[in-house]
Amino acid sequence: MVSEKENAHFSELEKLVESIKQRQQVVIFPPGIASFIAVNILLIASFITFFAPVMTIIGDDWEMSQKAGGQFLVILLAVICIVPPAILITRGKKNLQRWFILLSSALAFMAALMVVVGLTMNNEAIAYQSPPLYVCIITSSLAAFLAQTSHYKTLTLFYYLLHKHE
């Protein structure tokens, strides 16, 4: 349900986008762009600080080549989960904002769960990897917060209107 106030803002934004399309105006929206980029970079950091300790724990007795494979898989997963959705947002797919909220929340939850498991089950390997997991909780929570801000939402809406009739 969209309120009247939001509707008024929507029509204002629509007018603005129309004038940009006609090359009569330029808009660079620093708060929106800043949160958009921050979410991407924070999610990369979250991915690494979550999956790298996981790989260290589960791959303790792996050979170097297997560990390298694991490392590449994590990097590939991070790129696949972050880059195409972010590009699609700039192409007007506004619903992908939810994907970023979901992804960052899921990472924060899984990292927190691992820390709790490590502490309560007295698992030394997990407990030792707690500091990177704390970093993951902080970065992914921050990413989840930024992906829900009005700046981020306005930016996704802006891109949506910009590419609406393409």
């Binding site: 991407n40 970079i41 990369i44 950091a45 991915f47 690494i48 600080t49 790298a52 300790p53 260290t56 170097m64 560990k67 390298a68 490392q71 994590v74 990097i75 991070a78 790129v79 972050i82 880059v83 972010a86 590009i87 030792y128 990897q129 500091p131 990177p132």
Partner: peptide
Amino acid sequence: AATASSAQCANSAYRLYNETDYGNSEM
């Protein structure tokens, strides 16, 4: 460029993790 630099950012972050006490710098 955005894809490649993001991949490099992730790779560098992983290498940085490897250099900490929690990772494996031999890697």
